[in-house]
Design a binder for these strands. Structure first.
Lengths: 243, 243
DNA sequence: AATGGTTTAAGGTCATACCAAAATACCAGC
DNA sequence: GCTGGTATTTTGGTATGACCTTAAACCATT
């Protein structure tokens, strides 16, 4: 008896069916960001299910980052505009719970951030360069005041990624520097000389990009990232995999 | 009156509080993959809330890919082992709804898959090479039978990424080739000569890696990816950004 | 005009009941 | 003794209906 005759009876949850329907509407753009779904009670009669079921569906959609739920009059479920921050955050959440070592994530980061240097050298606009230079100045000042944090460094790397003018890449790098993933790395405080060196490398990189000097830019970024990587490794005392 | 006296009362959702608590247990590894949470009714009395609330919390955790819910006796919420497939899927869901163009994603993919070639050349084991060769043979056969699909190609790239022996990178590449993201790209069917050429490039790449020839491996992969990229671009008729 | 209460629409929570599915235990029949 | 069906129990899934909280809008008083 060919068992292909019987399609796996998917007695999936009613709430899941509702989720799928709404998700489909989103995909087909029949629901656009900012739109408001009917109220829970309206959805009940619309789908012919109880409010509990509708609410479960909304919880799932909310957890997936597809809708945002506001209470009060004029409240309801609103389709969210999917921004990079959210995507990166969701990614980071899963990453932080997956069995990845800090060394692995750092290496992945190294590949990406080094791989995009050619794009940056090629595409960075004057605006990009100005913004980066301003950032470097601010960081120098923060350093003087002893207020230089990893977060500032992360901001720099994120802004650099934006120079590719590729939203996917920007998103990727942002997720590497996301808040949740940052907590993975213990090195929140930066020793003064460390920060000073890192800050100088940032500035050198910007100038190399400004000069459209791919080799110099790559070399600078490479040295910068390798130094960070080795720090992560020694912190975790498992620096025996990489050659 | 100094208004700092009053701290903003945060009356977040009860279900969210429960989610946070369980998430914390996961993060602290007091709950490990495979563990089973108490039944819904037990959680009710434990948290002192109603079953509806507990269920909403479970829906959120389930949607986040942290637990899996099974029905029946001995059912309940089980902590999932976070695997790459799941991570990639969640990522792809958001990506497919974010305003990323296929061209952008393709470029990001190009950066990553090209950037990891040095790692692969350095780290690929004999097992890796054997597996890749077997894969190439199978693909050739599939090609003869006219059964060569994009999925097979995706499998190859995923297996290649695994040669880095870095779970983060493997996960990243997998997410690029995930099922949902695949649906973004229309090119599901592969024209015979296209598949033949791609398949040959796969094989050339493997041999270059086997010979530990970084330049050849990079060049081969680059050509292969560039060809794919240009196809995506022409399909979307917006190939005017890249130089 | 500004303040403060009231209405109203919406989500948030609770309690109870019943249904469905899955694992187990048990029991009849061969 | 083994097989196959049936009952029970455990657990999630759904439905109702009620009540509370929030936030916006509306209105009345000063």
């Amino acid at each position: 008896m060919p068992e292909e005759l019987f399609k796996t009876v998917s007695s999936s949850r009613v709430s899941q069916v509702i989720v799928d329907q709404i998700r489909l509407l989103l995909k087909e753009e029949r629901l656009k960001p900012g739109d408001r779904l009917p109220s829970e009670r309206e959805l009940c009669v619309h789908f012919g299910v109880s409010r509990v079921t509708v609410r479960e569906a909304l919880r799932i959609l909310e957890a997936s980052g597809l809708v945002e739920i506001r209470v009060g009059a004029r409240g309801g479920a609103f389709v969210t505009t999917p921004d990079a921050r959210q995507v990166g955050e969701g990614l980071a959440t899963l990453l932080s719970l997956s069995p990845l070592t800090a060394a692995e994530v750092t290496e992945a980061r190294l590949v990406v951030e080094l791989g995009i240097v050619p794009l940056i050298v090629e595409r960075a606009t004057q605006e990009d360069l100005d913004a980066l230079r301003v950032m470097c100045d601010e960081h120098t000042e923060a350093l003087e005041r002893g207020e230089y944090t990893m977060e500032l460094s992360a901001d720099f790397h994120t802004r650099v990624a934006a120079c590719t003018h590729n939203a996917a890449i920007k998103m990727l790098v942002e997720s590497f520097h996301g808040p949740l993933l940052m907590s993975l790395r213990q090195a929140q405080t930066v020793e003064p000389q460390m920060g000073r060196l890192g800050s100088k490398e940032h500035r050198d990189f910007v100038e190399a990009v400004a000069a459209r000097d791919l080799d110099a830019a790559t070399a600078t970024m490479n040295a910068h990232l390798q130094r960070t990587a080795s720090r992560v490794k020694e912190e975790h005392a498992e620096g025996d995999t990489a050659g």
